[in-house]
Simulated scan of single mutants.
Amino acid sequence: MSAYQVPLGSVMLLQQVLEKGGTTTCPVRRQQDWDIATIDAEVNQDTASVRVEFKSLARRLRLQRGDSANHLHLRDFIQDLANDRSDAVAKALALMDAHEHLSASLPDGHVAYITPTPWPATPFAAAITNNIGEMCAVASGADKDDLVAKVRAKLGLAVEGNGEQA
């Protein structure tokens, strides 16, 4: 075990800070070494905005409330930060941002499923279903805006801009 890990006992602490907000510290261990990550969470009705600081690194994470695995997402985020997997952290944050952006652009009754791709030119792919699970659109995009434009075009929705509304 050469990588930093958040001990199991601390995972429950992460769940509490995501529910109530506030600032806490969390031990991060590897072999005989350990250090402390500082977690500052601001919680509102819909999201938990979390700032994690480990040594000289600091990153932000925003989680949707109501996901029962949020404390595990936060644990993974802390471990990635501690193990200097900042590239993985950046990709995960970009993927979450693209999902949030795409979901906000869809009409009611549609659900976005998003995944990374192995292609640098189009790093995001999405599948859109309706409320009964039927596939409505599939697209990949160069960034979140490109992905939204392609999905909306495949769904036959007007592209919003210059005062227009879809």
Rank of each mutant, 00 (worst) to 15 (best):
I128A: 00
R62L: 09
A90S: 15
P107V: 07
V50E: 06
V151T: 11
L102G: 02
Q45S: 15
V89D: 02
V138I: 13
K91V: 02
E160N: 14
Y113E: 14
E164G: 12
R85L: 03
G21D: 01
G133K: 03
W119A: 13
R30M: 13
T25C: 04
K55M: 08
P118G: 15
M1K: 01
Q64C: 03
E100N: 05
L8N: 07
A41H: 10
L106Q: 02
Q5I: 09
L106T: 03
R62N: 08
P120R: 11
K144W: 05
A37Y: 11
A90R: 12
V138W: 07
P7F: 06
V89S: 08
L155K: 01
V89E: 01
H101A: 10
V28W: 09
T25A: 04
T117E: 02
I132W: 09
H101T: 11
A82T: 08
R30L: 08
V50D: 06
R85Y: 11
K150P: 03
Q45N: 14
V151H: 04
V111D: 03
P118S: 13
D145V: 13
R30V: 01
G163W: 11
L8Q: 04
A37S: 13
A3D: 12
I39G: 06
W34P: 00
V89C: 07
D146W: 04
N83Q: 08
G156P: 02
L13V: 15
G21S: 02
P7V: 05
E164A: 14
D143K: 05
T24C: 14
H99D: 08
T25M: 09
A137M: 09
L63T: 06
G161A: 10
N70W: 13
G163P: 06
L8Y: 02
A88F: 02
R75M: 15
K20M: 04
N83R: 03
G22C: 10
L61M: 09
W119M: 07
P118A: 12
L61I: 08
A153L: 10
K150N: 02
P118L: 07
L102T: 06
D80I: 01
D145F: 11
E164K: 14
K144E: 15
D97Q: 14
L14K: 05
R65W: 04
T129S: 08
A41C: 14
V50T: 04
N130L: 06
H71V: 07
E19H: 09
P123W: 02
V6P: 00
V28D: 06
